[in-house]
């Protein structure tokens, strides 16, 4: 691990100021992904700003009847929260489908959104990777791609976003609240938060240098049957091959976001108009334009079948 200086920030404002003063700094909260990457020298921050003391660990009902989730709320606490379990069951289900109990006890809401891909070529410093080192090339293309993306990818990168939580957040239309380095704040719909790789796969979100996530806000509950179905190589503690986050209303209308297939949680509102017609029609539009490899073509069928199972479950 490369050497770095370390400080603890007491407020969000102090964290942002520290980042402005220290170019090349990173915020650290849970650290479950960042420290792993620092050990491999894939991340090499010169300065770490520990934001665990900023008091952003609360879950509060908003005046609009939604829920404001502090950036450093642990995955365990978010999954166990009574309001989340009752009104946003999809989110609770997605959280407990991810990682292990130990990791969920440390991992935070903002950190989960910002975790990096688990593409094996990104993790192997001996191989070129455009995400790890811009312009160096992509070893995954033509390599072992079973786990990798089928849609939203580019000729520069076919990595997927690994989060389960973010897939549920996308289906629930979460907004991400931030403080920018000039002290101004903004609220970013999760639909706009992640960038597709294009020619710049090393830039993953629209966050600016030093911009700090303070909370994730959910709109008021949408009801319906809320289902998170994750398909993976083991029964537990594995990343998704395909996952479906769905909210299905009694009249058959609903929302569907897909994980494990794209560089971001994948949702196409136009596909949701087809839900009443069934899984084939819906997944056909969702994955229109997909560019699978021979190794991961199975994901196209798997999305359709998993969505079919979800729709069937919602009717019970």
């Amino acid at each position: 691990m490369k050497a770095f200086t370390y400080e603890r920030a007491a407020t969000a404002e102090a964290a942002v100021q520290a980042a402005t003063k220290n170019p090349g700094a990173k915020f650290i909260a849970g650290g479950t992904n960042l420290l792993d990457l620092m050990k491999l020298e894939i991340e090499t921050p010169q300065h770490l700003i520990d934001v665990n003391g900023t008091g952003l660990d609360k879950i509060e009902v908003t005046p609009e009847g939604g829920l404001r989730i502090g950036a450093s709320v642990r995955n365990t606490d978010l999954a166990a929260n009574e309001t989340v379990r009752r009104d946003y069951g999809l989110l609770s289900r997605a959280l407990v489908a991810g990682a292990s109990g130990q990791l969920r006890n440390k991992a935070t809401t903002a950190g989960n959104l910002l975790q990096r891909t688990r593409c094996p070529y990104f993790y192997d410093p001996n191989q070129p990777c455009n995400k790890r080192q811009a312009g160096s090339g992509c070893s995954a293309i033509g390599g072992v791609t079973r786990q990798l993306g089928v849609i939203g990818t580019s000729d520069a990168c076919i990595a997927t976003h690994p989060s389960d939580m973010a897939v549920a957040m996308r289906a629930l239309d979460a907004e991400i609240e931030t403080v920018k380095s000039d002290g101004s704040t903004r609220s970013i719909p999760i639909a706009d938060f992640y960038r597709l790789p294009g020619n710049t796969p090393h830039i993953e979100t629209i966050l600016q240098d030093g911009e700090f996530i303070t909370a994730v806000v959910l709109p008021k509950p949408v009801g319906g049957k809320q289902i998170y179905r994750k398909v993976r190589d083991r029964a537990s503690y594995a990343f998704a091959l395909v996952s479906i986050a769905a909210v299905i209303q009694p009249d058959g209308r609903g929302r569907v976001a897909v994980g494990g297939v794209a560089p971001k949680p994948w949702r196409m509102e136009a596909a949701e108009a087809e839900l009443a017609k069934g899984a084939r029609a819906t997944s056909g539009i969702l994955l229109d334009g997909a560019r699978p490899t021979d190794d991961n073509r199975f994901k196209i069928d798997l999305v359709e079948r998993t969505l079919g199972a979800v729709i069937a479950e919602a009717r019970v």
Binding site: I28, G31, T32, D36, K39, L48, Q102, K106
Partner: peptide, 23 residues
């Protein structure tokens, strides 16, 4: 040493964590 095996699990403030993935 990468949070995958759980051999380093300790209990901090009542909660189990991977001691290898925290400073």
């Amino acid at each position: 040493d990468h949070g995958q095996c759980g051999a380093c699990t300790v209990i901090v403030d009542g909660r189990r964590i991977n001691a290898c993935l925290t400073l």
